[in-house]
C-alpha cells in the first residue's frame, strides 16, 4: 500500500474507493483520505492561482486594444479569468483552507501556478495566441476535469467550461484577422505562434513517467486522463487549425502519422520547463511582485471594509 495511506482506516478507504469506482462524487464533509485532501488542496489552489496570475499577461495589452470591440472582448475575458479564479478558490475553500491562507502560500512561494503565464505577451497577436493555444490547452484539460471525483471541483469546472468556450474562439478570431491582414500583421501572428507553441504543450505537465503524483490522482479519479494523452489530443486538434491560418508550428517534425493516426512532434525542452517551474522563467518575479503589491495596496480597503462591516452588524443587532 502507498505510504501516504498508512494512517487511514482500511475499511473507510475501501468504501471510499468503491464510491470513486462507482462514479459517486465526494462531497466536502464526506470521509476522504488525507492524501486525497492534500492533493486537491494543491491542485485546485494551483488552478485558482493560475487563473488569477493569468490575468496579467493579457492585462499587459488591455490598455492597447486596437478597437472598441477588441477592448470589450478582452476585458470580458480577463474578467472571466478572475471569475474562474474565484469559483476555484471557493471550491478549494470547501477543503477547510481559507482564501487568506491560499494567498499566503502563493506569496510565500509554497503554492505554484501554471508556468505558462510567466511568458511574455509581446505583440497584439499574442493575445490571439494566448486565447487560441493557452486557453485551448486549458480547455482540453478542463473538459476532462469536469468528471473529476470531488464534487465542488467538478461543479466549478462545469461552469468554467461553459464560460471558457468563447475564450478560445476569440483568440482564434484575432489570429484569423492577423494572419489574413497586412504582411506586418501576419508576421506578428507567426511570431506569436512561435513563442507560445511549446509553452502551451508544457501546460500538460511532465511525461506520464516523470509525473510522481499521477498514479494516485488517476486511481482516485481526480485526474481522468494522463498528461501525455491530453497533450496529444491538443496537438491533434490544433495543428490543422494552424494550417488553416497559413501559419506553421515551430516544429519541423510535426507531421501527421498515418500509422498512429496522430501528429508526431519533437519533444519539449524539459530543461526550460523545469527552470520555469523552479522560478527562472522570464516573468516569474514580475508576476508575483504584481500580485503581492496589489494585495498590499488593497490592505487598507479590506481593513476599512472589515471595520465598516462590524459597525453595521452591531447597528442591526441593536
Amino acid at each position: 500500500m502507498d505510504d501516504k495511506l498508512k494512517n487511514e482506516d482500511p475499511e473507510l478507504l475501501k468504501e471510499f474507493q468503491a464510491k470513486i469506482d462507482a462514479e459517486v462524487k465526494i462531497e466536502p464533509k464526506d470521509y476522504m483520505p488525507e492524501a486525497y485532501r492534500q492533493h486537491l488542496i494543491r491542485q485546485i489552489s494551483q488552478h485558482a492561482h493560475s487563473e488569477v496570475i493569468g490575468m496579467q499577461p493579457e492585462g499587459n495589452w488591455i490598455t492597447r486594444c486596437p478597437s472598441i470591440r477588441a477592448k470589450k472582448i478582452l476585458m470580458a475575458k480577463i474578467q472571466d479569468e478572475g471569475g474562474h479564479g474565484l469559483y476555484l478558490y471557493s471550491a478549494a475553500e470547501t477543503l477547510g483552507v481559507s482564501r487568506d491562507q491560499y494567498l499566503k502560500w502563493l506569496h510565500e512561494g509554497k503554492a505554484k501556478y501554471a508556468s505558462v503565464f510567466n511568458y511574455s505577451a509581446l505583440n497584439w497577436a499574442d493575445i490571439g495566441a494566448i486565447g487560441w493555444l493557452v486557453d485551448g490547452a486549458a480547455i482540453v484539460n478542463q473538459v476532462s476535469l469536469q468528471r473529476t471525483s470531488y464534487g465542488p471541483y467538478s461543479r466549478a469546472m462545469v461552469k468554467i467550461c461553459k464560460e471558457e468556450s468563447f475564450h478560445q474562439r476569440q483568440g482564434y478570431e484575432i489570429m484569423v484577422h492577423m494572419a489574413q491582414g497586412t504582411p506586418e500583421q501576419k508576421e506578428m501572428a507567426q511570431d506569436a505562434l512561435n513563442r507560445w507553441w511549446y509553452p502551451s504543450l508544457m501546460m500538460f505537465g511532465p511525461h506520464d513517467g516523470d509525473s510522481p503524483r499521477s498514479s494516485l490522482a488517476m486511481q482516485w479519479k481526480i485526474k481522468r486522463e494522463t498528461n501525455d494523452e491530453l497533450r496529444q489530443k491538443f496537438i491533434d486538434k490544433t495543428v490543422p487549425q494552424a494550417e488553416f491560418l497559413g501559419l506553421t508550428v515551430p516544429d519541423e517534425n510535426c507531421k501527421f502519422n498515418e500509422a498512429t493516426g496522430h501528429y508526431d512532434w519533437t519533444d519539449i525542452n524539459w530543461d526550460e520547463f523545469w527552470a520555469s517551474i523552479k522560478g527562472y522563467g522570464p516573468n516569474n518575479k514580475r508576476r508575483m511582485k504584481h500580485h503581492q503589491k496589489v494585495h498590499a495596496e488593497g490592505a487598507w480597503v479590506r481593513e476599512a471594509s472589515i471595520a465598516y462591516g462590524k459597525k453595521k452588524e452591531k447597528k442591526e443587532v441593536a
Binding site: 470580458a76 474578467q79 472571466d80 471569475g83 474565484l86 469559483y87 471557493s90 475553500e93 482564501r99 466549478a156 461552469k159 479590506r302 471594509s305 472589515i306 465598516y308 462591516g309 453595521k312 452588524e313
Partner: peptide
C-alpha cells in the same frame, strides 16, 4: 457558488458581479 464580502450589501453586489454576468 460562493463569494467573499464584508457586509450584506456588498455580498449581493459581489454575487451579482460574479455569478450573473
Amino acid at each position: 457558488g460562493a463569494v467573499h464580502a464584508y457586509d450584506k450589501e456588498m455580498a449581493i453586489e459581489n454575487a451579482r458581479d460574479t455569478y450573473t454576468r
